[in-house]
């Protein structure tokens, strides 16, 4: 089984790009199953169902969607196996820019929107820096100069990334993405994350709503850089 993990900010075009790439796999008689992880709501399952690909939805609700995806990797893989699929595609709504959901042997695909500004690649952290492939979308809406700057900034953050410029509307570049999926390796029994999940051990994590500092315990970091541990 090959696993492709696709991350990217909301609205960057993950689903549109994937639909074109999966259509291309289909023409080669390769079977894929899709799991779409989101937080509160998604109707993207209908879009995948339309092209005849088995699809499952996972809503993480008040949990971090990346954590949720990681806990469920085994179940997702066995579900894809039951479907007789060659590929499991996990599309996740990585939101906080500190996570990277990719495992060592999966194909990590980061979808990034070129209209989000030339400094975005520097802001998004490990989900770009540890990706195998950076798919740039919406490049047709900005100037040639900005496209070139955007590309360069991505390579600054992740020099090994393969860059694919894709168009979610016309499908341009998506065949290239499908080729990369075909060439990726199989996942192992014991997958490991490429990047550790972010630090978050405090009272807010378990539901505290009061804002003042005196109410908080755990690992707390102040804006002046001072870090402390409050509690037993």
């Amino acid at each position: 089984m090959k696993m492709i993990i696709v991350a990217g900010t909301p609205g960057s075009g993950k689903t549109a790009v994937l639909i074109h790439a999966l259509k291309s796999l289909k023409t080669k008689n390769l079977k894929s199953s899709v799991v779409k992880i989101d937080c509160l709501y998604t109707d993207d399952d209908q879009k995948f169902a339309k092209i005849g690909v088995p699809v499952k939805i996972g809503l993480s609700m008040d949990m971090c969607p990346d954590h949720y995806a990681i806990y469920n990797v085994e179940d997702m893989l066995s579900w894809a196996q039951e479907n007789d699929s060659d590929y499991l595609i996990v599309e996740t709504a990585g939101l906080c820019h500190r996570c990277a959901p990719y495992t060592k042997n999966s194909l990590g695909v980061c979808v990034i929107d070129a209209t989000s500004g030339p400094n975005t690649p520097l802001k998004v952290g490990p989900f770009l820096s540890t990706a195998d492939i950076a798919v740039i979308t919406k490049g047709d809406m900005i100037s040639q100069a900005e496209r070139e700057i955007f590309r360069e900034k991505i390579l600054e953050v992740n020099p090994k990334a393969k860059i694919i410029e894709a168009n979610g509307l016309s499908g341009q570049g998506c065949v290239e993405l499908a080729e990369e999926m075909i060439n990726t390796k199989e996942v192992s029994e014991e997958e490991k994350l490429r990047h550790s999940a972010p630090l978050a051990v405090c009272t807010l994590c378990v539901g505290e709503t009061k804002v003042n500092k005196k109410h908080h315990r755990g690992i707390l970091r102040r804006i002046d850089g001072f870090e402390s541990y409050e509690g037993e």
Binding site: G117, P118, D140, M141, I142, S143, E146, I149, L155, I163
Partner: peptide, 18 residues
């Protein structure tokens, strides 16, 4: 990407950089 031979210009392109 560093060897791209083609540059594109179109009516729909805008400068968005601040």
């Amino acid at each position: 990407p560093r060897k791209k031979m083609v540059a594109q210009l179109s009516q729909n392109m805008n400068f968005l950089a601040d």
